[in-house]
């Protein structure tokens, strides 16, 4: 029996679950709850981090029921669908991107998974954020007119594995502002009526921004003749 408890404790620890003393409320009817705290790589609590859950093996659709950590980094999710959930956290303003996307996470084991049951609360979950990402900013314009090219696609990808990517769009002024992990990434911009644009041109150079650093890129798209 003692061995079984020890094995369960080890399993919980491997999933990021630490037996703790979080004070919790009750989950909403039909849901389970998850309580814990968010810390940085040094173990310091991260306040105002957004935390949400994702059913791992079922379709995750619609709205995202998220909560924010308090000054001690603590959170309580009270609307978690029963089943195995991955618990994600982010704080983009401080350089911590959404751990949902593989592009930002070096080791997927850092994303804790919890088996949630209806009406019960899992406590003591530790969600680690970090290391901090760098920030890539820029603007996409028509090289002939200088006008913003709003209807464009931006693909950021790990240069060693292009299957690990994020695909997104600039804002209504053609500007973008992304967090980028501290690995070599490629940047490709495409837009209808323009030639494809790749960071570094034909040399296909990589962007590497150290954690907490920043880089600005000017993207001038050439119209197709």
């Amino acid at each position: 029996m003692t061995k079984l408890i020890a094995v369960l404790m080890l399993l919980a620890l491997s999933l990021g679950i630490v037996v703790g003393e979080d004070s919790t409320e009750a989950p909403e009817p039909g849901f389970g709850g998850v309580a814990g705290h968010v810390a940085d790589v040094d173990g310091n609590p991260v306040d105002k981090a957004e935390v949400y859950c994702q059913l791992v093996a079922e379709p995750g659709m619609g709205g995202r029921a998220s909560v924010f950590t308090d000054v001690n980094g603590k959170f309580f999710l009270n609307r978690v669908l029963p089943g195995t959930n991955a618990i994600h956290a982010s704080k983009p303003d401080d350089g911590y991107p959404d751990t949902m996307f593989a592009f930002f996470v070096k080791d997927s084991r850092r994303v804790p998974q919890v088996l949630v049951q209806e009406g019960s609360v899992t406590t003591g979950l530790l969600v680690r954020l970090g290391p901090k990402a760098g920030r890539l900013t820029g603007r996409i314009v028509d090289s002939d007119t200088g006008a913003a090219v709003v209807r464009s696609e931006i693909r950021l990808y790990h240069q060693g594995n292009p299957d690990v990517y994020v695909l997104t769009a600039p804002d209504e002024q053609g500007k973008f502002d992304f967090l980028v992990p501290a690995v070599k990434v490629g940047l490709r911009v495409t837009a209808r009526g323009f030639q494809n644009w790749e960071y570094g041109g034909i040399s296909n150079a990589a962007i590497l921004i150290e954690g907490g650093g920043a880089k600005e890129v000017h993207v001038a798209l050439k119209p197709r003749k």
Binding site: Q54, V56, G60, A86, H88, T99, M100, F101, A102, F103, F104, V105, S108, V111, Q113, D163, V164, Y165, V166, L167, T168, A169
Partner: peptide, 14 residues
């Protein structure tokens, strides 16, 4: 609007 592979199962897109 952001799309990319999921951390916990990278062959599936989110």
């Amino acid at each position: 609007d952001v799309t990319g592979p999921i951390t916990v199962c990278p062959t599936t897109v989110f």
